[in-house]
């Protein structure tokens, strides 16, 4: 018997089942198909404006910084100001994301924007989050050429752009949107749920930001849908 078969045989022996029982198979198939929701906190069940306010407040509560801009047209200046305020070089790495590509970067001529994944030699990266869950200030980032996963973890400073109309109240709404879009068997390789900058409290429980991932997380919420959808 292979180890696989041994494990299944021991589970079935322990449960006193054969694995062929129809009612059991149906119970499992039903749950996988219906994916019932459990308890959903009320705190995220808000109108759009309050939901955004909750998201930004929760991000700040975990040592992220936030900023709100009217449209994508304001993105280059917002990024430039942020880099100057933190004495960072005016250089930025991004993926091929169409929303990020649509920003008028030429309006910030001193800023160098390069495209691709990072090998660890970029100080600052910018990503476009697919969405966010307001309940805990959690950003949702998807792997792929648009927003390479390495950009979320290797640079010291991570700037994340979120569109106002992708802010959901709770995790279940975020996950349902992903399931609708990709199907249960089409998820991207990585879904990164990011809540604040990297941290460790392993030394005498002193909380220190910037353990292995970014030391700073700056979230730029973009209000006007038109600019984002117009690409």
């Amino acid at each position: 018997m292979s180890s696989r078969d041994l494990v299944f045989a021991s589970i079935r022996r322990a449960l006193g089942v054969t694995g062929a029982e129809e009612p059991r198979r149906k119970a499992v198939a039903d749950r996988l198909r219906d994916h019932p929701r459990g308890v959903i906190p009320k705190r995220g069940q808000l109108g759009a404006e309050e939901r955004i306010a909750l998201l930004l407040a929760k991000i700040e509560a975990v040592s992220g910084t936030t900023q709100r801009i009217a449209s994508l047209d304001d993105l280059p200046a917002a990024v430039g100001d942020y880099l100057r305020a933190h004495n960072l070089p005016l250089a930025l790495k991004r993926g091929a994301d169409p929303v990020l590509a649509a920003a008028p970067w030429e309006r910030e001529p001193a800023l160098t924007v390069t495209i691709g994944a990072t090998a660890g030699d970029d100080l600052v990266a910018i990503s476009h989050a697919d969405g966010a869950a307001a309940e805990t200030g959690t950003l949702v980032l998807l792997s792929g050429p648009d927003n390479p996963t390495t950009l979320n973890f290797l640079p010291d400073n991570h700037i994340v752009v979120v569109a106002a109309d992708t802010v959901q109240g709770d995790y279940e709404s975020v996950l349902a949107a992903l399931r609708d879009r990709f199907g249960p068997d089409g998820l991207p390789r990585a879904i990164n749920l990011v809540t604040g900058p990297s941290r460790s409290a392993d030394i005498e429980q002193t909380l220190i930001l910037g353990a292995h991932g970014p030391r700073r997380l700056h979230v730029i919420l973009v209000d006007r849908q038109a600019s984002l959808n117009g690409v």
């Binding site: 994944a117 792997s143 792929g144 050429p145 390495t150 390789r189 990585a190």
Partner: peptide, 24 residues
Amino acid sequence: ATGQEMSVYTTVMTGPRRPDDPDG
């Protein structure tokens, strides 16, 4: 665990790098 509302990184990983993925 730590008294955080959410840990910083929760990652759902499905399979290896896709053909046009730049990393993973």
